[in-house]
Amino acid sequence: MFKRLMMVALLVIAPLSAATAADQTNPYKLMDEAAQKTFDRLKNEQPQIRANPDYLRTIVDQELLPYVQVKYAGALVLGQYYKSATPAQREAYFAAFREYLKQAYGQALAMYHGQTYQIAPEQPLGDKTIVPIRVTIIDPNGRPPVRLDFQWRKNSQTGNWQAYDMIAEGVSMITTKQNEWGTLLRTKGIDGLTAQLKSISQQKITLEEKK
């Protein structure tokens, strides 16, 4: 169930391209415009997507990853294993993690069937560096609404905000991946996880038929 919630949630996290980005210092504006741009692209490019579902990787690479804190999220997933990894191991892992996100997020976007969304009203940021933004996803086919909290983090150097995690039903996506990959990290280390991520990233994206 959580895996499905995570995939549905990713439908609204794909941010804007650099040329049309919203105010990078306001995570609420980023979330709002990102959702609108993403849904528009999914709707307008269905012919290309249906002809070649792996085209979704391109959308992810162009529109999402430049505005997601990939390395920060990847380091959180590694936890204690990050500090013990060599620079070469980290570089290989982050490259594999990025390719994994292209496949995983692309597969999530393949679930698009006309969903709509509501974003919580903007709250004062103050001096906060981590801000959760509640998004409610509404399914046109009558499924119950899904309420999610996207975690946005302020870059201490640039002042810009980027998304790095999502919490559904009190469970963090980062925590879920830590639990899912924990045994592999304990037995085969970061190299074993890197190899698995490379394998997963090679899987073809498949479209979910409308139910």
Score class of each variant (00 low, 15 high):
Thr25Asp: 11
Asp149Phe: 00
Asn52Gln: 02
Arg134Tyr: 01
Ala18Asn: 09
Arg186Gln: 07
Leu197Ala: 10
Arg90His: 05
Ala34Ile: 07
Pro132Glu: 09
Gln62Trp: 08
Pro66Ile: 02
Leu5Pro: 02
Asp165Leu: 08
Lys154Thr: 11
Gly74Gln: 13
Pro27Tyr: 10
Ile59Met: 04
Phe94Glu: 10
Lys210Glu: 11
Thr176Gln: 15
Leu42Ala: 09
Val131Gly: 08
Leu10Tyr: 01
Asp54Val: 00
Trp152Met: 09
Gln24Ser: 01
Lys198Pro: 08
Thr158Trp: 11
Lys83Glu: 09
Gln107Asn: 15
Ile138Ser: 09
Thr116Asp: 03
Arg147Thr: 01
Arg57Glu: 05
Phe39Glu: 02
Glu209Tyr: 12
Trp161Ile: 01
Gln36Arg: 06
Trp181Cys: 15
Arg90Gln: 08
Thr136Ile: 01
Ala92Arg: 10
Arg4Thr: 04
Val8Met: 01
Met7Ala: 11
Gln162Leu: 10
Trp181Gly: 10
Lys154Val: 08
Lys211Val: 14
Ala73Asn: 13
Met1Gln: 04
Tyr112Pro: 09
Val77Lys: 13
Gln80Ser: 04
Arg153Phe: 05
Arg57Gly: 02
Val171Gly: 10
Asn44Gly: 02
Thr158Gly: 09
Asp127Ser: 01
Ala73Trp: 11
Tyr55Ala: 08
Val68Trp: 08
Lys210Arg: 11
Ala9Arg: 02
Val8Thr: 02
Pro121Lys: 04
Met31Asp: 02
Asn52Val: 05
Thr129Pro: 09
Pro47Leu: 10
Ser84Asn: 02
Val70His: 01
Gly192Trp: 07
Thr20Val: 03
Arg4His: 03
Thr20Gln: 13
Arg4Glu: 01
Tyr112Phe: 03
Thr175Trp: 02
Asn44Phe: 09
Val171Lys: 04
Arg143Ala: 13
Ala22Glu: 10
Tyr82Ala: 01
Leu11Ala: 01
Thr206Cys: 03
Ala108Cys: 14
Gly106Trp: 01
Ile200Leu: 11
Ala88Gln: 00
Arg4Ala: 01
Met7Gly: 04
Pro87Tyr: 15
Ala110Arg: 04
Val68Lys: 02
Ala73Leu: 08
Ala22Thr: 08
Thr183Val: 08
Leu10Thr: 15
Pro145Asn: 11
Pro66Gly: 08
Arg50Asn: 08
Ala95Asp: 07
Ser199Ile: 15
Asn44Pro: 10
Leu193Thr: 05
Ile167Pro: 12
Leu193Phe: 12
Thr175Gln: 12
Lys211Asn: 06
Ile167Leu: 12
Thr175Ser: 06
Val146Met: 14
Thr175His: 15
Glu122Phe: 13
Tyr164Asn: 06
Ala120Trp: 15
Lys43Met: 14
Phe150Met: 14
Asp61Cys: 00
Lys29Cys: 10
Leu125Pro: 06
Phe39Pro: 04
Val171Arg: 07
Thr194Phe: 00
Leu42His: 11
Ile59Cys: 01
Val70Glu: 05
Gln36Thr: 11
Ala21Gln: 01
Lys204Val: 09
Gln36Val: 12
Lys210Gly: 09
Phe97Glu: 08
Asn155Asp: 08
Thr129Tyr: 06
Met31Trp: 07
Leu197Tyr: 13
Asp165Phe: 08
Asp139Ile: 13
Gln157Tyr: 00
Lys154Pro: 14
Lys29Asp: 01
Gly126Gln: 15
Leu16Arg: 08
Trp181Val: 11
Ala34Phe: 01
Gln69Glu: 13
Asp165His: 14
Ile13Leu: 04
Arg147Leu: 09
Glu99Cys: 11
Val146Gln: 07
Phe94Ser: 01
Thr194Ile: 03
Pro47Val: 03
Met31His: 05
Glu33His: 04
Pro140Ser: 09
Ala92His: 05
Tyr67Ile: 02
Leu185Pro: 06
Leu101Tyr: 01
Gly79Cys: 03
Ile138Cys: 01
Gly170Gln: 00
Thr25Ala: 13
Ala168Arg: 12
Asn44Cys: 00
Glu180Gln: 10
Met111Lys: 03
Thr206Trp: 08
Leu16Phe: 00
Gly106Pro: 08
Ala22Cys: 02
Ala92Trp: 06
Gln89Cys: 04
Ala18Lys: 14
Glu122Gln: 03
Thr176Pro: 06
Gly142Ile: 01
Lys188Ser: 12
Asp165Pro: 05
Glu99His: 00
Lys198Val: 15
Leu109Gly: 10
Ser172Thr: 02
Lys198Met: 15
Leu109Met: 02
Ile13Ser: 11
Gly106Ala: 00
Met7Glu: 11
Asp191Ile: 02
Lys177Thr: 10
Asn160Met: 02
Lys83Ser: 03
Glu122Thr: 02
Leu42Gln: 15
